[in-house]
Design a protein around this nucleic acid. Structure first.
Length: 217
DNA sequence: TTATAGATTGCCT
DNA sequence: GGCAATCTATAAT
């Protein structure tokens, strides 16, 4: 048991949490915390946006065509990191679900930064970000590619890592925070099975990905 | 404020 | 060879 900056006690999630259907895990994962343990205080962000990817009957899932060298983590035991490289530019972080042999995962799409924001800005190459404004904080991790850059997540470093082990430098934790209202929408950026409502968001949270609605001012 | 193009790698057909 | 679970800069309105 360790303490975060807000003084809330933080515990690792049990393996059984991810040993379920991704659609069941998704809404409960909102509000949990991703922690990168390096440097002095480490970096941490609260999960505010998640997408579920299924095994069969989901053409958008990387596991749709069966097990390959690239997607094997999705078929492995629950609670492990599946990282893929996209558009030749960014990495994306997923967490495997369901028991060994069954495909299913969650794409982490956005974080609300809660610790190590200066390190995150540095990792993102944002030297002049105003880390006291929502706008500046939002620029750190409001998207799957951005959050990986902010936390230094790469395929080489983190793919296959156990996110539920106290010895890992990348973990998912529960600090007791509860998301009050959960929204469900279709997933972003896919062409196959694009209509399925499998994107879960903390409704009203400004750190969810996408453009900010700016009224005229 | 919205729209569009381009970057750039590795995986699968 | 084609294309992908993204993001940013730049241009047009």
């Amino acid at each position: 048991m360790e303490k975060n900056v807000a003084g809330r006690s933080r515990t690792l999630l049990p393996r059984s949490f991810f040993d379920r259907d991704p659609r069941q895990v998704s809404p409960e994962l909102l509000g949990k915390v991703i922690v990168r343990k390096d440097g002095r205080s480490g970096r941490a962000g609260r999960i505010v946006e998640v997408e579920a990817y299924l095994g069969a009957d989901d053409g958008a899932a990387h596991s749709a065509a069966g097990r390959t060298a690239r997607n094997q983590v999705i078929f492995g035991p629950p609670g492990h990191a599946y990282i893929y490289f996209i558009y030749g530019v960014y990495y994306c972080l997923n967490i495997s679900c369901l028991p060994e042999g069954e495909a299913g995962c969650l794409l982490i799409r956005a974080l609300e930064p809660i610790a190590g924001t200066e390190e995150m800005a540095e990792a993102r190459g944002l030297d002049n970000a105003d880390l006291h404004s929502v706008r500046g904080l939002r620029s750190l991790a409001s998207g799957p590619g951005k959050l990986c850059e902010a936390l230094g997540i790469t395929r080489e470093r983190d793919n296959g890592k156990d996110l539920l082990s106290p010895r890992s430098d990348l973990i998912v934790a529960d600090d007791g925070y509860v998301v009050s209202e959960i929204g469900v929408t279709p997933r972003i950026g896919i062409t196959k099975s694009a209509e399925m409502p499998l994107r879960y968001i903390a409704a009203g949270n400004p750190f969810v990905s996408g453009k900010i609605k700016m009224g005229t001012r």
